[in-house]
Design a protein around this nucleic acid. Sequence first.
DNA 1: ACAAAAGTGTTATGTGTACACCCATGC
DNA 2: GCATGGGTGTACACATAACACTTTTGT
Lengths: 233, 233
Amino acid sequence: MLKYSKQTRLLLAVDCIIFGFDGEVLKILLIKRGFQPEKGNWSLMGGFVQPDESLDQSANRILKQLTGLEGVYLEQLYTFGQPQRDPIERTVSVAYFALVDIHKYEAQISDDYHAEWFQLKRAPKLIFDQQEMVEQARKRIRYKAAMHPILFELLPTKFTIPQLQTLYESVFNTTIDKRNFSKRVLATGLLIKLADKDKAGSKRGAYYYQLNMQNYYAKFQAFMNFIPNPDSL
Amino acid sequence: MLKYSKQTRLLLAVDCIIFGFDGEVLKILLIKRGFQPEKGNWSLMGGFVQPDESLDQSANRILKQLTGLEGVYLEQLYTFGQPQRDPIERTVSVAYFALVDIHKYEAQISDDYHAEWFQLKRAPKLIFDQQEMVEQARKRIRYKAAMHPILFELLPTKFTIPQLQTLYESVFNTTIDKRNFSKRVLATGLLIKLADKDKAGSKRGAYYYQLNMQNYYAKFQAFMNFIPNPDSL
DNA sequence: ACAAAAGTGTTATGTGTACACCCATGC
DNA sequence: GCATGGGTGTACACATAACACTTTTGT
């Protein structure tokens, strides 16, 4: 078979920025890198793209390796290709970000990688240009969540409106009036009120809701505008 | 120097979706591909990423090769990596889109490539997965232009409000009330009214405007909402 | 004088925002 | 019975959307 002769081949990697929400703040999942260079330092989970897999497949494989999760929200973020970003050998990296329900994450699977959840704000320094990757992922999530209902991907299937509000406040680093918030959220028609309550957060308890999946898929592409005063993008 | 052994290297390309506006409709610049496979068929301008260049540099180089233009709006769109997308050899392609002033484009430079501008709606079938690249670029431009003032990049430095409106109507495939349009556009503070008029479009003539660059850079990241009824994203 | 496009102002409607009180429960 | 968080309604301000006529000038 013919090839494109005289062209240089290079390594292609996928790195995953994995976000979770613990009910209080936004977190990311990091690993201790297991090989040189930068062995033992905090890093995103990543891997090389294999000959027979697409980029999406590669990202899903890497995500599953670390978390055991499949079918979660995963989106290609940006491709990073500065010639010197990896000191060993030129490697271009396609960054993906994932939004996972932190409670579904199976901690034991990632023992191999010494993975830990860090508050996004208090994460350690990362290797190479991964700091920049995380920062861009943070921006993208804000940008997108300001108009599309992606943040539900971070919550369990049953959640309460106060939980949802805390999530939005955490992502946008702001405070929202709860009356206005619930009005807008309910006005989307995305939520179905359930009969039972979450008694964990308060004595009275807060009603559980779940997504109306029909409306969810229909409205996913539509614009929304949830956020009064994001402190910046 | 150490290498990552046992990993497969692959070809990395950059493809550019180049948009222009002729005063009537949105157009893209295509070339007749000069080598196998698909030689002689319509294609995006592209090239392989060289060992010493970043992805942005690569995209700028490719754009300049075809158009002679430098310093134009260029944004990374998405990376396409289906294993079989190029039948000759696995090639992952980072797609960029460019917004150029079609009048600054120097046709003679691209004679080598037999380049032609096509109406976006009436462009010929493209090779590989480039159809999908163009479609995604179209979506991205709409998405971004709905909130950020990027479409000015398609106009000459001096332009009229009716020209700008035609551009928006063309990109969003809709019609906009001219009274509301000019009110909103002027309210942004992005435009400086000039003393002279463009007499080409009408007998009375329309005042030229130019961008207020201070406000332009300041507001670039801010949200806007120009479009009443986009027919979809 | 008329055709063709440019330019401009007002009103109605709806959306967003600010704001305060009662409810249910566990202790 | 009180402290804690959950839940709801209204009034005002602002932004958006609908809409029609006058101006200029080349022919």
